[in-house]
Design a binder for these strands. Structure first.
Lengths: 134, 134, 134, 134
DNA sequence: GTGGTCTAGACCACA
DNA sequence: GTGGTCTAGACCACT
């Protein structure tokens, strides 16, 4: 489970954890039934207070994305594929819209914005693939 | 000076003000030397406490984007064009990168992401232009 | 953390706090990573409103001299030694220059100015040392 | 009458005016009976609001350093030599003390502080003399 | 426990 | 008229 915490972003740590776990579940990088890192392990690795992780996990459970199995740990819950697709589409549209609005406001031509997006896409894609080959 | 405050976003009001004024300065919608709305006027219009606006303005001054002239008001500061362009480019790249990463993670093909971006661009662009024609 | 506030100087309290904390950090009396007094504690001790202290701390953070760790407290940030030395040298030169200009303008001979400076230096130095021996 | 206003120092303009005129009177650069620049002229030259200069002049009059002759203008008042010397000594001690305290706090050796003071003294002195020869 | 944000309202200083 | 400062007190979020 790869998580990156930015201590200086102003975004609460527990939210960063939720956000990233949620994304990975949506993207299928964390699949149904898979066990999440234990609170202690994750807290130790990220060097944050265990209570913070515990809070994030509790909220993921409330959200229905994770299930607690007593005495064992937390597992990725079953999510309707349709709902998953819907959420993914919503998140994508949100972020693309922000990008579009910024480009319009700063007067970057649409072709240039699209080109830049594709460039960044390819750069990130190849990096990701090389990781998954390791 | 058009500002929109979302009281339910969780983002502090003063930060929303800073963010939007900063963007408008960068985009040239607020030009060098132009006077900003007075603290009291803006506070009245947005229905927030004057101190909240004052805090936002103070931080814009610290950031070097605005200059206070005592007893007169707050004015858009002189910003090096090169620095402005640099900041704009950085902001654009940041947001486009987030979009690209999301698209990769959710396995949306690059062409589709680019097409969606252009769609949203045009939609927002035409909306903006119709405003400025009013 | 020893701070002295002069309520009658006309200098805003939050600025006096910033100024003194900044100096102590520069002088190494507050060292990297050290925790500052909590907002409430300092406010109580100095008998001022917590918001006033909070404002000072927020600006120290903007200045890069302090780091907030949410829910924990404020800590002295890591400052490059070279930058620290530079700042100290600048501050010293500024104040010495003001003194020199005044002496020239009031036609006090250079030897007398230097002698007076050394006298005052020793007086203050011995006072400081006796404090630290308590 | 040479005055320099720093619009970014945070010190009120009228105080900067008072401060500098007072110093020049103390130093004898403005001598008893000499006429001060008119409010309009000085305001025009410094590019500040005439009311600001007017306020400064009024306070100099209250302080007894200047005398208003109706219909003519403002003149440097007669000041007891003893009082003048006293004020000069006080101002000098104040500024030298600040320098000494800073040097002690930043651990600059007294000899180095004294040497630096003398250097700055000579530099400023020679600059001043060359001006007065023009 | 920590700091952050906001309000309502007062008073000051500046131009 | 402008912005700056401070207070008292409430409520929130984070650890």
């Amino acid at each position: 489970m790869l998580l990156e915490i930015d201590h200086h972003s102003g975004v609460p740590i527990y939210r960063q954890v939720i956000e990233q776990v949620r994304r990975q579940i949506m993207a299928g990088q964390l699949s149904e039934g898979q066990q999440l890192d234990s609170v202690r392990e994750l807290a130790g690795r990220l060097r944050v207070n265990p209570m913070t992780i515990s809070k994030a996990y509790a909220l993921l459970e409330v959200e229905g994305l994770a299930e607690r199995r007593r005495g064992i740990g937390l597992f990725v819950a079953r999510v309707q594929t349709s709902q998953k697709e819907q959420t993914k589409a919503r998140l994508l549209e949100e972020i693309l819209k922000k990008a579009a609005v910024t480009a319009v406001q700063f007067e970057m031509p649409e072709e240039e914005a699209a080109r830049m997006l594709v460039d960044l896409y390819r750069k990130h894609d190849s990096k990701t693939r090389s990781y998954s080959n390791e």
